[in-house]
């Protein structure tokens, strides 16, 4: 038997605020993360070899792609279209579909990290471009290869720090 009083009540409100995004094949976001990881590695390489303009441009493009995923939803990401057209037909059906919210949140984290690198790079701090690309690479690589969900982890830590998810303690207490 399963009881979940803690999550049964806040859900209708959440649904009204934000329309439910369709569930995803979990391998789609991982496929996208693999492409992102390779491109971030290229940014690191360019930054290390002193091609700072090229590194900054490529990091900006990646930031724009993260923004796409974060605002349109992980299911509408261009890599997702690539996955559906060329990769998924070659794979068996997925074990289970996943909610699109966690990978969308993860895209937001990627956006934050890469935009920080772009802004600091534009402000003249060239090393920030390579460093932020390296940080984002580790997250994307762990996601692609090990199915690690940095967004999920950070979300919980932000809840624990009191930054997210406040305000309904009395309601959920039951």
């Amino acid at each position: 038997m399963t009881n979940s009083p803690a999550d049964s009540r806040p859900q209708p409100a959440a649904r009204r605020r934000r329309p439910e995004r369709p569930d995803l094949d979990p391998r789609g976001p991982r496929f996208g993360a693999a492409i992102t990881a390779v491109l971030l590695l290229v940014v690191v390489f360019l930054a290390l070899t002193g091609a700072s303009v090229a590194a900054l441009v490529l990091l900006s493009v990646l930031a724009a792609l993260f923004a796409w995923g974060a605002f349109a939803g992980a299911g509408r990401h261009p890599y997702g279209a690539l996955f559906k057209a060329y990769v998924r037909p070659r794979l068996g059906p997925p074990d289970a579909l996943e909610n699109a919210a966690p990978p969308t949140f993860a895209q937001g984290i990627g956006l934050l990290v890469t935009v920080t690198g772009v802004v600091l790079g534009l402000a003249g701090l060239e090393s920030a471009v390579g460093v932020s690309a390296a940080v984002a690479f580790v997250a994307a690589f762990l996601n692609a290869v090990f199915d690690y969900c940095l967004g999920c982890q950070l979300y919980l830590l932000l809840v624990r720090a009191g930054i997210l998810g406040r305000g309904q303690t009395a309601v959920a207490g039951g």
Binding site: S4, D7, Q153, L156, R160, G162, A172
Partner: peptide, 23 residues
């Protein structure tokens, strides 16, 4: 045997009390 699924999203107190570092 019972199964309870506890949503910590609005229960920071529980996350801290049980030292939950991952979900």
């Amino acid at each position: 045997v019972a199964h309870l699924d506890v949503d910590l999203t609005h229960r920071r107190d529980l996350a801290n009390r049980f030292g939950i570092l991952q979900t």
